[in-house]
Design a protein around this nucleic acid. Structure first.
Length: 924
RNA sequence: GCUCGAAUGGUGAAAUGGUAGACACGAGGGACUUAAAAUCCCUUGGCUAUUGCGGCUGUGCGGGUUCGAGUCCCGCUUCGAGCACCA
C-alpha cells in the first residue's frame, strides 16, 4: 500500500463522525481542559490557508491534552452577525440569513477536511434565536444593575432605588455619567420619568446622549475600536462625531478591574500592553480654578502635572465644553460663536490632519490658586471634550501643545525646571529640579519633579482646591447600531421611558423587513417591520446590537449550548470554569478581548460564573500573508521575460495567479489558458524555465495570491497541510504563505509511512528495539512533549524528521518503537496516525491512547565529547566515558597533547568542566 | 512623542550563558533511468586552503560583565506593532 492521503483522510473523518469520537461530556472523574479558537465570521470568500493556522495549533494542543488524560472541551461556532452579509442583502435583496447560512456550510466543509477534533454537537451561531436569547438576557441584567465603586462590583438597581428612597445620594459611590446630588425627599417626589432619568445615569446598560462615531456611508454608529484614524475599519469610510441618544455599556466602570486583571492572566506582554494603553489609566489631580469677577462658577480641570501650576499662563476649554457658553463675555460672543461654527464643520479626520493651531479668547480670566494671578481663558479644538473635564490648565513651558498655542497667540512661557531651554520648544520630560515655583503658601523650588508632583497634590487636597483623581481613556461602549442584521434589543417604550421585556418573552425574534435600508423618515431598518410592538401595543426598540454583543460570552455558551433555562448551568460552569487556552489574532485586542472580559466580570459580579477572567492563557497566532508572483511583460509586446533576465528589458510586472506557479516556476500552458489576452504569449526563458518574481503582500483576490486549503488538502492531504503550517515558523509570528517548502513535509509523511509498509508488505516486527532506536524515540518524545507545552511546533516537526531519518538508518521496524511514535505524531497528523494505529492491530481510536513518557535511561550517552577551550577559544576535543567524574575529565584534558601545547610556559589558573559540553582552561 | 517587540546564511528558521546555523526549502554535484518524474547519496555562512583532511572570520552597530555572550547589562541604528492634540 502506498500512502494514499485521499483514501485515508476521508475514511477516518467519516469514522470520527459516525463514532462521535470527539463528543464531550462533563466527567468529574477527569480534569477538564478548555481549548478555544476565536470563532470566525463566515465571509463569502471562504477560508484561505491563513485561517486554519491557529485552529491547527489549538487542535494539536487539544489532542495532546486528551492523550494525557484530560477531558478536553474544544468547540467551534460562528460569529454570524456582521456588516458584509447585510451590505450584500442591501444590494441583492437576499435575506442576510440566507447568505450567512450558505457561508457557514462552506466554512464547515472546509474545516471538516482538515481533520479537527471539534465537538460539533456544541456548535453555536450567534444569529440563532436560542443563542441570542442569552445575549438579550445579559443586556437586561446590565440594565438592571449599577456599579458600586465602593464594593467594586455590580449590584441590582433595586438596591440603589431603595437607598435613594431612604437617604438620597448620600453615601452612594456609583459609576455614573454625571455626579448627582439629591435627598430622599427629593427622590420620593420625582415622577416616573424623572426617576428613570436618574437611574439611567447609573445603569450599566444605559441610554445616553453621547458623542458617537457616526458613519454616514454605513448608516450606523461605531464603537471606538471599529474606527481607526477617522475611518471605519470595515470599508474605510469617513466617520464623524455626532451627539446621539444611544444605548451604551458602562465599560468604564470596570476600567480598574480590567487593568488589574491583566496581572492575573497568562497573555503575551505586548497584548497586555495594548490593553493597558487602551484603558489608559493616568494618575493626576482634579483642580478648581476660580474665575475673576464670578462667584457662581469655578473651572474644573484635570492634570497629571500638579507640580506645574506655577507655570500656568492660560486656560483652554474644549469647543464642546459647557464652560464656553458660561465664560464668554458679551464683547467676545461673536468671535467665539464664529470659531465654534468653524470647528463644528470639520470632521474628526480633518481636525486630526489639520495641525494648524487655532483658538479664540473667551474674555474671562481664571485665577491661579497658587499665585493669585489672573490668567486668560481660551477655547481651542486641541482640547478634547471627552477626556477629563474638557478643560485644561496650560503650561506652555512643559507641554508641546500648550507651547505651540502660546507661541501662536503670544502668551507668556514660564520655565519651571532648572536648565530647561524653552526658547525653541517645550521641555516635556518628567525629570529635573523645580524653579520659579514658590508662592505665598507653597514652595516647590529645589524639589525633583517627582517630589514636586506629590507635594503639590498633597497641598491641593489639603487646601480643598482639588482632589487626587485617576482618569481612564477607556470609554463606555456604544451599543446601538442602526442596522438590521443584529440582535434586537428586548426593549419597549412606554411614554418615552424604556422598559425591558420580561424574561419569559425572550428571545425577541428579529422581524422580517421588506428592505434592509433605513426608513424614509431616517429610522433604522427595524422601523419597516410590521407589528413591531409589544402585545399591549408599546413600540419596540428599533436599533439592533453591535457585532461584539454576540461574541462577548460565547465561550460560556459552549459549556452548555442547548440549555434553555440558563446561559450556562451552574454545574457546567463549575466544571468547565473558563478557557484554559485561547488562540486567535491580535486584531481583537481592544475590541472583543476587552468586551468579553468586561462581560465576564459583570456575570461574575452577578454570581452567574465562578471565574473573573474568561481566558486564562492566550496565544496570538501570526497572520499569514500572501506571497504574490509576478511575470514581466516587455513594454508594448505580449512577450514575457523570466525574472532573472528582466534587467535587460523595459518591463511591467503583472500579478500572476499563484496557483499556476510552482516553486516560482510558471506553468506556461496554464498561463496561456489563464486569460484570453495571454493566449498568444511568448516567453524569454532562462535555462528553459520561466521564473517568476515574488513579493509579500496581503492575501487577497486582487493580488491573485489566495491559496485555498482545499487545494492543498486535495493535492498533499490534510496531514501535510497541518504539519506544514506548523513547520512554517513560530506560531506567533506573521509570515508569508510559501508553498515552496511543502514537499519536504509531504516527503516526511511518505517516509514515515515507509517505516510500516513497503509496497504491500507489512514491515513491522516484534523484534526487541536496539538501544539506538530507543534513544531516538525517547529523544523525540522528550522534545515534542516540551515543545507542545511551549507551542514550539515548528521544532517538533523537525524532531519528527530527525527521528524518522534515524530509524531509517537503523532499519528499525520494531513495534515497540513504532507504536509510541504513532501516538506522538497523532496530534499533528491525526489521519495517518489513526490509519497506522489500526494497522498495528488496535480497534480503539488513537485519540484514546496514552501519551508515552520518555525514559532518561535511554537518553544517557555512552561517551561524551568534550570541546576543550583555551581562554574561551576552542582548540581540540576529547572523548571520555559518560560517567567520568569532572575532576577526571579535567585531568584528561590537561594531559592531552593539545593542552600541553597551549599551557606551555604558563600557569593554569583554573579548569572549568561543563557537564557534557566544555572544558575550559584558563591560563595566567 | 510615549510604550512594547524584533534584527542570525540565498529563503523559512534552530540554539537551559557552553563547539552558532538543527530541520526544511532553494542551489550545485552524483547514482538509478532510453528520458522525465519519483527516489537515494554528497556539498552548501563568508573568505582562504583544498598534494596533510586545516586557517581566518562571522548572529544590525559601539561598549561592558564573564573563563566563555546570538543569549545578560548600558548606549545607538533600522524595522514592525500598539496608543496618541489623553493635558
Amino acid at each position: 500500500m502506498e500512502y494514499n492521503h485521499r483514501d485515508i483522510e476521508s475514511r477516518w473523518q467519516q469514522y470520527w463522525r459516525d463514532n462521535k469520537t470527539y463528543h464531550t461530556e462533563i466527567d468529574p472523574a477527569r480534569p477538564k481542559y478548555y481549548v478555544l479558537d476565536m470563532f470566525p465570521y463566515p465571509s463569502g470568500a471562504g477560508l484561505h490557508v491563513g485561517h486554519p493556522l491557529g485552529y491547527i495549533a489549538s487542535d494539536i494542543f487539544s489532542r495532546y491534552k486528551r492523550l494525557n488524560g484530560f477531558n478536553v472541551l474544544h468547540p467551534m461556532g460562528y460569529d454570524a452577525y456582521g456588516l458584509p452579509a447585510e451590505q450584500y442583502a442591501i444590494q441583492t435583496g437576499q435575506h442576510p440569513e440566507v447568505t450567512t447560512f450558505k457561508n457557514i456550510d462552506r466554512y464547515r466543509s472546509q474545516l471538516d477536511k482538515i481533520g479537527f477534533c471539534y465537538d460539533w454537537d456544541r456548535e453555536i451561531k450567534t444569529c440563532a434565536p436560542e443563542y441570542y436569547k442569552w445575549t438579550q438576557w445579559a443586556f437586561i441584567k446590565m440594565f438592571e444593575s449599577w456599579y458600586d465603586n465602593s464594593a467594586r462590583k455590580a449590584r441590582p438597581i433595586s438596591e440603589l432605588e431603595a437607598h435613594f428612597a431612604k437617604e438620597g445620594t448620600a453615601g452612594v459611590n456609583g459609576a455614573c455619567s454625571r455626579e448627582l446630588q439629591f435627598t430622599a425627599d427629593e427622590w420620593n417626589a420625582m415622577d416616573e420619568k424623572a426617576k428613570s432619568d436618574v437611574l439611567m445615569n447609573y445603569r450599566i446598560a444605559y441610554l445616553g446622549n453621547t458623542m458617537v462615531n457616526w458613519c454616514p456611508k454605513l448608516g450606523t454608529v461605531l464603537a471606538n475600536d471599529e474606527v481607526s484614524e477617522g475611518l471605519s475599519i470595515r470599508g474605510g469610510y469617513p466617520v464623524e462625531q455626532k451627539l446621539m441618544y444611544q444605548w451604551c455599556l458602562r465599560v468604564s466602570a470596570y476600567a480598574q478591574r480590567l487593568l488589574d486583571g491583566l496581572d492575573t492572566i497568562d497573555w503575551t506582554e505586548s497584548l497586555k500592553e495594548t490593553q493597558r494603553n487602551w484603558i489608559g489609566r493616568s494618575e493626576g489631580a482634579e483642580m478648581r480654578f476660580a474665575v475673576a469677577g464670578r462667584d457662581d462658577i469655578e473651572l474644573e480641570i484635570f492634570t497629571t502635572r500638579a507640580d506645574t501650576v506655577f507655570g500656568v499662563t492660560f486656560m483652554v476649554l474644549a469647543p464642546e465644553s459647557a464652560y464656553v457658553r458660561q465664560l464668554t463675555t458679551p464683547d467676545r460672543e461673536a468671535e467665539v460663536a464664529a470659531y465654534l461654527d468653524a470647528v463644528k464643520h470639520k470632521t474628526e479626520r480633518e481636525r486630526m490632519i489639520d495641525k494648524k493651531v487655532t483658538g479664540v479668547f473667551t474674555g474671562s480670566y481664571a485665577i491661579n490658586p497658587l499665585t493669585g494671578k489672573e490668567i486668560p481663558v481660551w477655547v481651542s479644538d486641541y482640547v478634547l471634550a471627552g477626556y477629563g473635564t474638557g478643560a485644561i490648565m496650560a503650561v506652555p513651558a512643559h507641554d508641546s501643545r500648550d507651547y505651540a498655542f502660546a507661541r501662536r497667540f503670544d502668551l507668556p512661557v514660564i520655565p519651571l525646571i532648572e536648565g530647561a531651554d524653552v526658547s525653541e520648544a517645550s521641555f516635556d520630560a518628567k525629570e529635573g529640579v523645580m524653579i520659579n515655583s514658590a508662592g505665598p503658601e507653597l514652595d516647590l523650588n529645589g524639589l525633583t519633579v517627582k517630589e514636586a508632583i506629590a507635594a503639590a497634590k498633597k497641598f491641593i487636597a489639603e487646601k480643598g482646591i482639588g482632589r487626587v483623581k485617576v482618569n481612564y481613556r477607556l470609554r463606555d461602549a456604544i451599543f446601538s447600531r442602526q442596522r438590521y442584521w443584529g440582535e434586537p434589543f428586548p426593549v419597549y417604550y412606554k411614554d418615552g421611558v424604556p422598559h425591558m421585556l420580561p424574561e419569559n418573552q425572550l428571545p425577541l425574534l428579529l422581524p422580517e423587513v421588506d428592505k434592509y435600508l433605513p426608513t424614509e423618515t431616517g429610522e433604522p431598518p427595524l422601523g419597516r417591520a410590521k407589528n413591531w410592538h409589544t402585545a399591549d401595543g408599546y413600540p419596540l426598540e428599533l436599533n439592533t446590537m453591535p457585532g461584539f454583543a454576540g461574541s462577548s460570552a460565547y465561550y460560556l455558551r459552549y459549556m452548555d449550548p442547548r440549555n434553555d433555562k440558563a446561559l450556562v448551568s451552574p454545574e457546567a460552569d463549575a466544571y468547565w470554569r473558563n478557557v484554559d487556552l485561547y488562540i486567535g489574532g491580535t486584531e481583537h485586542a481592544t475590541g472583543h478581548l476587552i468586551y468579553s472580559r468586561f462581560w465576564n466580570k459583570f456575570l461574575y459580579d452577578l454570581g452567574v460564573v465562578v471565574e473573573e477572567e474568561p481566558f486564562k492563557k492566550l496565544i496570538n497566532q501570526g497572520m499569514i500573508q500572501g506571497r504574490s508572483n509576478f511575470v514581466y511583460r516587455i513594454k508594448d509586446t505580449n512577450t514575457f521575460v523570466s525574472a532573472g533576465l528582466k534587467g535587460d528589458y523595459d518591463t511591467t510586472p503583472i500579478h500572476v495567479d499563484v496557483n499556476i506557479v510552482s516553486n516560482d516556476q510558471l506553468d506556461l500552458d496554464a498561463f496561456r489558458k489563464w486569460r484570453p489576452e495571454f493566449a498568444t504569449a511568448e516567453f524569454v526563458l532562462e535555462d528553459g524555465k520561466y521564473i517568476c518574481g515574488w513579493a509579500v503582500e496581503k492575501m487577497s483576490k486582487s493580488m491573485f495570491n489566495v491559496v485555498n486549503p482545499d487545494d492543498i488538502v486535495e493535492r498533499y492531504g490534510a496531514d501535510t497541510l497541518r504539519l506544514y503550517e506548523m513547520f512554517l515558523g513560530p506560531l506567533e509570528q506573521s509570515k508569508p504563505w510559501d508553498t515552496n517548502g511543502i514537499d519536504g513535509v509531504n516527503r516526511f509523511l511518505k517516509r514515515f509511512w515507509g517505516l510500516f509498509f513497503k509496497g504491500d508488505n507489512w514491515l513491522v516486527t516484534d523484534d526487541a528495539p536496539s538501544p539506538e532506536a530507543l534513544k531516538s524515540l525517547h529523544k523525540l518524545i522528550k522534545k515534542v512533549t516540551g515543545d507542545i507545552e511551549t507551542f514550539s511546533y515548528n521544532t517538533s516537526v523537525a524532531a519528527f524528521m530527525i527521528c524518522v531519518n534515524e530509524l531509517y538508518q537503523l532499519k528499525c521496524h520494531s513495534r515497540a518503537i513504532l507504536e509510541p511514535l504513532v501516538v506522538v505524531l497523532a496530534p499533528f497528523a491525526p489521519h495517518i496516525a489513526e490509519e497506522l494505529w489500526h494497522a498495528l492491530g488496535h480497534d480503539t481510536t488513537v485519540c484514546d491512547a496514552q501519551w508515552p513518557a520518555w525514559n532518561e535511561e535511554y537518553l544517557r550517552e555512552s561517551a561524551v565529547k568534550y570541546a576543550v577551550s583555551f581562554n574561551g577559544k576552542v582548540r581540540f576535543s576529547i572523548e571520555v566515558p559518560a560517567d567520568t567524574p569532572a575532576d577526571e575529565v579535567e585531568k584528561l584534558a590537561l594531559g592531552h597533547e593539545g593542552a600541553a601545547k597551549w599551557t606551555e610556559g604558563k600557569t593554569v589558573r583554573k579548569v572549568i568542566v561543563v557537564p557534557g559540553k566544555i572544558v575550559n582552561i584558563v591560563v595566567g
